[in-house]
């Protein structure tokens, strides 16, 4: 379980998604680039050319390496590409949230948390 100090300093959101979702969320003001020298962005734009390893690396970086991210937003069709990672991710912090994208309507059946909800209630 998360200790108290673990989530006190988590104050950013992170996004992995297609260009439109990332642009919109950045417009809302969630974008953050850590000061140089490392210049880490808290968002990743995924298109058809991005390979799965890069997505996985970004997901790992947002979930385990960086300690200042509280919520990871990920497009559902991107999440599908690393579905195994998402389904085995059980930590409370940061929270991983699947969001719909413009081209891919939201499918509650695929959401890992909603599936857990359904399983728990035997629906």
């Amino acid at each position: 379980m998360a200790s108290q100090a673990d989530y006190r300093d988590r104050q950013f959101l992170a996004v992995i998604g297609d260009e439109d979702s990332v642009t919109g969320l950045l417009l809302a003001g969630i974008g953050h680039v850590t000061p140089p020298p490392d210049n880490q962005k808290n968002f990743l734009v995924v298109d058809a050319k991005t390979d799965t390893a890069a997505i996985e690396a970004a997901f790992d970086r947002f979930t385990s390496e960086r300690k200042d991210i509280g919520i990871v937003l990920i497009n559902q069709h991107v999440a599908d590409r690393i579905r195994n990672r998402i389904d085995t991710y059980t930590q409370a912090f940061p929270a991983v949230l699947e969001i719909p994208s413009k081209d891919h309507p939201y499918d509650p059946e695929k959401d890992s948390v909603l599936r857990r909800v359904r399983r728990l209630f035997g629906e």
Partner: peptide
């Protein structure tokens, strides 16, 4: 999109974690 991605520097929209106590369990809330 490109312009926005390049000009993003510091987060305007941030979150803060609070705690809520339910029967001795500390539940965080953003």
């Amino acid at each position: 999109g490109y312009q926005i991605q390049e000009s993003a520097k510091s987060a305007r929209f941030r979150i803060r974690a609070r705690q809520e106590n339910v029967s001795g369990v500390l539940l965080p809330a953003f």
